[in-house]
Design a binder for these strands. Structure first.
Lengths: 203, 203
DNA sequence: CGATACATGTAACCGGTTACATGATTTT
DNA sequence: AAAATCATGTAACCGGTTACATGTATCG
C-alpha cells in the first residue's frame, strides 16, 4: 500500500526522473550542485528513496550491466509515477501550505510548467500570489500586536519573517506577469505558425 | 555523554527556559502561537526533548504536585545549560550556515541579545550581513550561469531563492543599523544616568 | 601504478510525526 | 453533567544523517 504522503525528496526525485531518465548518481549530482540540495543529497537518503519509489511502482529501473558486480540502474518515471506527480503538482495551495510548507510549494513551482504546462503554471502562480498576500496581511497584524512586547532581536527576527514573505509575494507578482507574457508569446507564435506555415518552433 | 549537536528544537527550548522557567505546556504554547512553531510543536517532540535536556543536566525540573497523578514540571535552565546556550549563540557564522542552516541562524539571532547582550547581537548581525552579502554574490553568479539553460518555472524558482537572500541581506543591513542606534541610546542613557544620579533606568 | 573522481550501496542512530491515552479544570 | 480546554505523556513508524564499505574508470 503506497504511503499517503511522499516526502519532499521523493517528489523531487520523481520530478527529476520525469525530465529524463537518470541514474542514482546523476540524481545525486543534481542535489549536490544546485540549490535543490536543500531537499537533501547524500546516498543514505537518495538510494533508499529510489528503492521505495521503485517498490511503489512510481519509478522503473533499467539495469545496465546486470551481470557485473556493480550494476547501474537508470530510473524512469512510470505512468503511476506520473499520476502521483501530477496529483502533487495540481493540488490547490492552501493557507497552511504557505505558512508551514513553503519549501514544498517552491519545489512544486519549479516543476509545474514542465509537467502540467504553462497554463497550469500560471494558475499555480496566481493562487500562490493570493495566498502569500493573505499571509502577509496576517503576519503583519501579528507583528503589530506582538512587536511592542518583544526584546530587540526577537522583534527584528519576527520582522525578518514578515519581510521574507513580502519579498516572496513581490516575486510571485512578477512570476505571474512573466508567465502571462510567456503564454502570450506562445499563442502569438502558434498563430503565426499556423498562418505562415509553422515557421516559428514551439520550443 | 551529551550529544554533539543538539537539535534546533532543543536549542529553542533551552533559550525559552532561559527567558523564564516554564512548564512543558507553556513551552508548547509558545510554539503553537508564534512563528516559532516552525521549529515544531506537538507533545510528541517537546516532552521527549525536555526529558533529554533534563537528563543532560541542561534543564532542571521543579515538580509541582509531586504526589498527584499528574505532576507538573517547571523547567529552568541550569549553569551547564546556560554554557551550552552561550556556546551555541556565540559561534561564528560560516558560509555553510547561511547556505544550509538559515533557520538555525535566525533562531540564534532571535535570542542573542537576550542572552549575550546588545554588543554581541551587533557583532552577530555584522557577521551575518557580511556572510549574506557574500552568498548573494555567489548565488547571483550561479543564476547568471544556469538561468539560460533552465525551463521557465525552474528559472523563476531559482530567482526566488536569490531574491529571498537579497531581502534577508537588506534586512540584515537594517538590523545592524537598528542595533547600533540601540547601543548608542543605551550608552547615552548610561552617561546621563551616571552624571545626573541614575535617573534613567537601564531596562 | 597510485590517486582521484565516478558510482552504488548498507546499517546504526536519532529525532520528528502521528495517533493515542489520560487526568484536571473550567465553562456552558 | 457534558463539553471544551488545560496539561502531560507514550509508542510505533518513518525517513534523514552519518559513517562506513566497495567497486570502476580515468588520468597523470
Amino acid at each position: 500500500m503506497p504511503r499517503a504522503v511522499p516526502s519532499l525528496l521523493e517528489h523531487a526525485l520523481l520530478a527529476l526522473a520525469h525530465q529524463e531518465p537518470r541514474s542514482g548518481y546523476a540524481l545525486r549530482r543534481v542535489f549536490a550542485t544546485t540549490p535543490m540540495g536543500h531537499y537533501s543529497d547524500s546516498p543514505g537518503s537518495i538510494y533508499p528513496a529510489l528503492d521505495r519509489l521503485a517498490r511503489r511502482g512510481w519509478l522503473s529501473a533499467a539495469v545496465h550491466g546486470a551481470g557485473s558486480l556493480r550494476p547501474r540502474r537508470v530510473f524512469s518515471i512510470t505512468p503511476a509515477g506520473l499520476d502521483q506527480l501530477e496529483k502533487w503538482l495540481s493540488a490547490r495551495i492552501t493557507a497552511d501550505d504557505v505558512m508551514w510548507r513553503m519549501d514544498d510549494v517552491m519545489l512544486r513551482f519549479a516543476f509545474v510548467a514542465d509537467v502540467l504546462g504553462l497554463a497550469a503554471a500560471l494558475a499555480f502562480s496566481c493562487d500562490l500570489e493570493g495566498a502569500l498576500a493573505a499571509h502577509v496581511r496576517q503576519l503583519t497584524r501579528f507583528y503589530a500586536a506582538a512587536a511592542r512586547a518583544m526584546p530587540v532581536t526577537g522583534r527584528l527576527a519576527l520582522a525578518s519573517g514578515v519581510e521574507m514573505y513580502e519579498a516572496q509575494h513581490r516575486w510571485a507578482v512578477r512570476a505571474v506577469r512573466e508567465l502571462r507574457a510567456h503564454e502570450r508569446a506562445a499563442r502569438t507564435a502558434d498563430r503565426a505558425g499556423r498562418a505562415g506555415g509553422a515557421r516559428v518552433p514551439r520550443r
